[in-house]
Design a protein around this nucleic acid. Structure first.
Length: 479
RNA sequence: GCUCGUAUAGUGUAGUGGCCCAUCAUGAAGCCCUCUCGAGGCUUCGACCCGGGUUCAAAUCCCGGUACGAGCACCA
C-alpha cells in the first residue's frame, strides 16, 4: 500500500476557518447591515459585539453599515442627547470607519404612522382598548379580544382618537398586529405595535403622541432601508417571528437573520445603562469613563485598543451558545497589540531608598524595549536608588546596573548569579498608579522614573504590567 | 406553565457522514531566549452532555432524556 497509494496513508492537513463565517444567502448582493442601540446612554462593552460583527461584514463584503438610533421610548428609557454625539464617535473608533448611514427613529415617525394606518386600512391591525391585564387573559386562553373585530373604518377613528390629546390617554389603547390567537408561541399572539406616550421627547418634543414599539418600528425601518442581514442576540428570536408575521401581511421579504448567544463577563458583573446613569449621578463613579465601568469610553481610556475588541469578538464568532468569558482573553488580544509600542518604564511601589556603596556606572543608558528600536532612557545616580519595599532586605540584582547585597554594597557589575532581578528608579517623581479592581479603585503610591512621554502613551511598567499615562498619574491597563 | 434555542479540553472556538486516536487560541506546567513576574520560541496537559437508533462508517443525521439560557412588556 505504501508504494501503490501513498496518498492514502498521509494524514491530510485539517483546514481551519479563519475569521467570520460566510454570510448566508448573499446572492451576489452587497450586504446592508445595521446596528441599533438605544441612545439612553453611551455605548458599552456589550454593544461592541454588534458593532464589530455587523461592521466587519459590511467592511469585508463592501456593503453598508447603518447606525440606527432606536429612540422611541420616552418613558422607560428616555433618550440622552449627548448619546447622539458620542455613539457615532465611538462607532468610528471601534470599527475604524464611520457608518454609511445614520437613521434616527424619532425623526422618521411619519413613516411609522403611515404604515400603522396602512395596517388598519388593509385590515391586519386593530386598535385595542383592553387593559394589559385583560389582554393577557386573552393571550393565555387563546381567545380573541372583542376589539379584534372592529370595522376598518372604526379602527381608523380609534387611531385618530389615540393621536388626539383630548382622546385616549396613555394606557387606554394600543395598536395591535392581527396574527392568530391560537399560535403555539404565546409571544406572537396579536402583538402590540404602538402605544401612547405623552412625555416630551428630547429631540422632537411633543410632536408625536403615538409611538411605535421596537418590533414595529424596527420591522418597518429594516424594510425601508433595504437591510439584507440582521445579526443580533438570540433573545430577539421571537422578535424575528413577530416581525416576519408583519412582513407577510405587507407582502415583504424578511431579511436573513443570524443570532448570537449571551455573553457574560464575570469581572463586569451586571451593569445596565440606567443603573450606571444613577450611580454616576450619585457620585459612585466619576463619569461614564470611570475605569471600573464596562463602557467603551472607560475601556478606551484604560488603553484597550479597538483592534483588540475586534479580534476578541471575531474570535468568539457567531455561535448561539451562551458563554462566559474572562476579561483576560480580551487583555491577551490587547497585549499583542500594545506590547511592541509600549516603552518600558520603572515604577517603584512603596519606595524604599537604598544607598549604593562601591564602584558602579553612575550614569548611563538603558534600553526602552528589548525587541524594538526605541530611543534608550538615561539614568543618573547621586548616591542611591529607590527599590520596592518588598525587594529590600535581600541580595538583589538591580536590573541593567549591578548586583548588591542587603546593605547596598555593590558586589558585581555583571550578573554574577541567579539572584532576583529587580527594577529601580534613580531620582524620579512621586506618582500614583490607579487600578480598577471590580467595584474598587485601588491607588498605589510610588516613584516613577523620569520620562518625557506624552499623556495617553501606553507604557509597560517593568514587573507590573501595562499602564497609560494620564495627567495626574498612571492608570493600569492590565497585566 | 407555554414557546423557542444551545450543548466539542478550565475558558472560548474549528468541524455539517469517512480527511477526526478531533483544529486553533487562551489557560496551566516545563524548557529556551531575554539583565522585567512582559514579549518571542518550543514541549506537555486537556474535550465531542447522557441513552437509544439510522449507516459499511456518526462530533456530524434521527428520537428520547438531562443541563443551561432566552421570550411570553403599552422596554430596547
Amino acid at each position: 500500500m505504501e508504494t501503490e497509494a501513498p496518498e492514502l496513508l498521509e494524514r491530510k492537513v485539517q483546514t481551519r476557518r479563519e475569521g467570520l463565517p460566510e454570510l448566508p444567502n448573499l446572492d451576489g448582493r452587497k450586504p446592508v447591515l445595521r446596528f441599533a442601540p438605544n441612545p439612553n446612554g453611551p455605548l458599552s462593552f456589550g454593544h461592541s459585539r454588534g458593532l464589530v460583527i455587523n461592521g466587519q461584514y459590511a467592511k469585508d463584503l463592501d456593503g453598508e453599515l447603518i447606525l440606527r438610533f432606536d429612540d422611541t421610548d420616552t418613558t422607560v428609557k428616555p433618550p440622552m442627547l449627548e448619546a447622539y454625539e458620542s455613539i457615532p464617535e465611538q462607532q468610528e473608533w471601534l470599527c475604524g470607519f464611520s457608518a454609511h448611514r445614520i437613521v434616527i427613529a424619532s425623526e422618521r415617525m411619519e413613516h411609522y404612522h403611515d404604515h400603522a394606518r396602512m395596517m388598519l386600512e388593509r385590515g391586519f391591525g386593530y386598535v385595542c382598548t383592553c387593559s394589559g391585564e385583560e389582554f393577557k387573559a386573552f393571550r393565555v386562553s387563546m381567545t380573541e379580544c372583542p376589539c379584534r373585530n372592529n370595522e376598518d373604518s372604526n379602527n381608523l377613528q380609534l387611531w385618530e382618537k389615540m393621536n388626539d390629546p383630548d382622546g385616549f390617554q396613555p394606557g387606554d389603547a394600543v395598536l395591535r398586529v392581527k396574527t392568530d390567537m391560537t399560535l403555539k408561541n404565546p409571544a406572537l399572539r396579536d402583538w402590540p405595535a404602538a402605544r401612547i406616550q405623552t412625555n416630551s421627547h428630547p429631540r422632537v418634543g411633543n410632536k408625536w403622541r403615538v409611538w411605535p414599539l421596537l418590533d414595529f418600528q424596527s420591522a418597518v425601518e429594516d424594510h425601508l432601508q433595504e437591510v439584507t442581514h440582521i445579526i443580533r442576540g438570540k433573545d430577539l428570536m421571537d422578535s424575528t417571528r413577530k416581525q416576519t408575521l408583519l412582513y407577510e401581511h405587507f407582502g415583504w421579504k424578511y431579511p436573513e437573520t443570524i443570532y448570537w448567544g449571551r455573553v457574560k463577563v464575570h469581572e463586569f458583573g451586571s451593569f445596565s445603562t440606567s443603573q450606571m446613569k444613577r450611580d454616576i449621578a450619585e457620585g459612585k463613579f466619576s463619569g461614564w469613563d470611570d475605569a471600573r465601568l464596562p463602557t467603551l469610553s472607560a475601556l478606551s481610556r484604560r488603553g484597550i485598543r479597538p483592534d483588540s475588541l475586534r479580534s476578541f469578538w471575531i474570535e468568539l464568532g457567531l455561535t448561539q451558545k451562551d458563554i462566559a468569558v474572562p476579561l483576560s482573553t480580551l487583555y491577551s488580544h490587547n497585549t499583542k497589540i500594545i506590547d511592541p509600542d509600549a516603552p518600558r518604564l520603572a515604577f517603584v511601589r512603596n519606595a524604599f531608598p537604598i544607598v549604593l556603596n562601591g564602584e558602579y556606572p553612575k550614569s548611563g543608558k538603558i534600553q526602552s524595549h528589548s525587541d524594538t528600536e526605541m530611543p534608550p532612557r538615561n539614568y543618573s545616580i547621586e548616591e542611591g536608588v529607590w527599590i520596592e519595599q518588598e525587594d529590600s532586605g535581600k541580595s538583589i540584582r538591580l536590573k541593567d546596573l549591578c548586583d548588591i547585597d542587603v546593605d547596598g554594597n555593590v558586589e558585581s557589575i555583571d550578573r554574577s548569579d541567579k539572584r532576583p532581578v529587580v527594577h529601580w528608579v534613580a531620582g524620579g517623581k512621586p506618582s500614583t498608579l490607579t487600578i480598577a479592581d471590580g467595584q474598587d479603585l485601588k491607588i498605589v503610591e510610588g516613584i516613577l522614573e523620569d520620562h518625557s512621554y506624552p499623556v495617553g502613551t501606553i507604557v509597560q511598567l517593568e514587573r507590573i504590567g501595562y499602564a497609560i499615562i494620564e495627567n495626574d498619574g498612571l492608570l493600569m491597563t492590565h497585566d
